[in-house]
Design a protein around this nucleic acid. Structure first.
Lengths: 105, 105
DNA sequence: TATCAATATAGATAACTTTCTATATAGGTT
DNA sequence: AACCTATATAGAAAGTTATCTATATTGATA
């Protein structure tokens, strides 16, 4: 998870996905919030090639920070807010020294 | 910060530093909690060479996840709990950002 | 069925990271 | 001062990651 977040490109994309209406135009075939953002929009905004973006999205998905959903030709990526909250709480917990030594990573 | 945490070795070390009494023997010249843990202890426990550990500690320090303090010959590393809390809260905040949240927990 | 459009996969290359060995530095001790 | 001990820095080799171009896959459409 930290590895997935450690790339500035991926972190930027994830933050965009968390507030899709602030960063992307409306989509015809899928709702920005309910369905996610299509790869084409992300590719255009980040300014890298489409295969590179695909690879980044794969890593975010493997870390379960996003989920994907196909509608027609498009694949929509949506952030997994629950996962981010778990990570946030885990950090707070670790910072407070609450003798939790889990290694479920 | 995420880059610093993305190495399993560094994450492990940081978690040890957060609970030093659970993971290290007492030190003569510095208190495990108040002063931090010396590089020698960390090196022995992680099973890498001393220069490698030094490099890892440098990265953690550059990310301000630890601070260092010299006492005599030793350098003691102590975790920056405040920084971890800031990161944890930032993640929680980012996760909550957008308006609509489907509660499929 | 042939074609198109959106995304994924494969493979190559460059850049970065991790680790090591050897050596330097800085503080303490004799 | 000379030496010892703990940690840092330098430099090289190996492993990993990011990026590209070219191609494959998958679903929609004419």
């Amino acid at each position: 998870m930290f590895a997935a977040l450690s790339s500035p490109v991926r972190l930027r994309i994830l933050l965009w996905l968390l507030e899709p209406r602030a960063h992307f135009p409306e989509q015809q075939d899928g709702d920005l919030v309910d369905d996610g953002v299509c790869v084409g929009f992300i590719t255009e905004k980040i300014g890298l090639t489409q295969p590179t973006v695909s690879a980044h999205m794969k890593k975010l998905a493997e870390a379960e920070l996003v989920t994907s959903k196909r509608i027609g030709n498009w694949i929509f990526y949506r952030p997994q807010r629950k996962k981010l909250k778990i990570l946030g709480n885990w950090l707070l917990c670790a910072a407070d020294n609450s003798s939790v030594e889990n290694s479920t990573k």
